[in-house]
C-alpha cells in the first residue's frame, strides 16, 4: 500500500547513522520491497578564500517547504511504482562530515527506486525553500549557493 499522509520532514541537527540504520531496519517486515535507494547529503568542508567550512546552519520557510516536500513526494508516487518513501532534511547546525539530507525510496524493483531517488534529490535542492549558511572556522559565514 502506498503511504501518502503528510509527515514531518525536518530534523533538528544532523541525521545520525543510527537513525538511518533504524529506518532501514524498519523495512524488513515489508517483504514486497525488492530495492531501496538511499541518498545521503553530507556537509562538505569546502575551502573558500582560505577559510574552511566547519558547519552549515540550515533555515527554512517551513510551511512552504513542508507543502513542497509533500508535492514532490506525491509526484514521485504518481510517476514511479514505489512501496514507500521517507524524506528528512536537517534544520539548524550540521557540522562538516555530518548528514543533512536523507532520501530513502523503496520499491519492488530497482529501476523505480533508483530513478525516483535521483529525481527527488534534484527537485528538493531546486524547489524547496531551505537555505544553508556556511560557517567558517573564524565564525564568519556566507550563504551557500547550490550548483
Amino acid at each position: 500500500m502506498k503511504e501518502k499522509k503528510k509527515r514531518t520532514v525536518f530534523i533538528d541537527g544532523p541525521v545520525t547513522p543510527a537513525f538511518i540504520a533504524d529506518a532501514i531496519q524498519q523495512h524488513s517486515i515489508k517483504t514486497d520491497i525488492g530495492a531501496h535507494s538511499i541518498f545521503l547529503g553530507q556537509v562538505r568542508s569546502d575551502i573558500i578564500n582560505k577559510q574552511e567550512v566547519v558547519a552549515i546552519e540550515y533555515s527554512a520557510y517551513r510551511e512552504m517547504a513542508e507543502d513542497k516536500f509533500h508535492e514532490i513526494r506525491e509526484d514521485a508516487f504518481r510517476d514511479f511504482s514505489l512501496t514507500c518513501m521517507h524524506l528528512y532534511h536537517s534544520l539548524g547546525s550540521v557540522k562538516s562530515g555530518e548528514i543533512s539530507l536523507f532520501v530513502f525510496v523503496s520499491a519492488p524493483h530497482r529501476q523505480d527506486a533508483i530513478k525516483a531517488c535521483e529525481l527527488l534529490v534534484e527537485r528538493i535542492k531546486k524547489e524547496v525553500p531551505v537555505w544553508g549558511k556556511e560557517i567558517f572556522a573564524n565564525n564568519h559565514y556566507q550563504w551557500k549557493k547550490n550548483t
Binding site: S100, E127, P129, V130, N146
Partner: peptide
Amino acid sequence: VALLPPFSGG
C-alpha cells in the same frame, strides 16, 4: 508575502 533568495538546501 515572503522574499526568497535562491534555495540552497541539501
